[in-house]
Amino acid sequence: MRIDASKVDRIVDAYGCHRDSLISILQDVQAECSYLPEDALKRVAKRLKLPLIQVYGVATFFKAFSLQPRGEHMVRVCLGTACHVRGAPAVLDEVRRQLDVEPGETTEDSRFTLETVNCLGACALGPLVVVDSEYQGQITPGKVKRVLKQYMNDGRGK
């Protein structure tokens, strides 16, 4: 993906071109491109007058950032403690099997990216699966197929 340098510049300028805002800048760039393309990181480094490695280091340290393009739908399986004791690992196994990817990966057809997350703060509903921003509470392995199906055949996605 080629990234328009002016888009990055606009984001950087909005934060006053400060090093302190690096994380916020990267968050906004990611919101714009759905991931952090190499060109965008280079542009950010150049604008902030930082060695590229520092930008790259931050981008690889925080879980929020992805250097790979992501799928159309984001499937996040909560592995918080409350979800864990109520059987989240079995749910994750089933999601893995259904999508045929490991956490952190994207399906071949780029429809789904699977991620695990350590608590989404909705512990009373566990086990929890969040697809895009829809919370699906009290999921069991048996319900996984039905939940994912809603997103599998919707053409362009929701």
Partner: peptide, 25 residues
């Protein structure tokens, strides 16, 4: 408001402040 980047370690005070300054946590 400063949005964290998703790292448990940033609950630790010095890591949180490092991250506020735009460094790794």
């Amino acid at each position: 408001i400063s949005r964290g980047g998703g790292a448990f370690i940033c609950g630790e005070s010095t890591a949180l402040m490092a991250s506020l300054e735009g460094h790794i946590g």
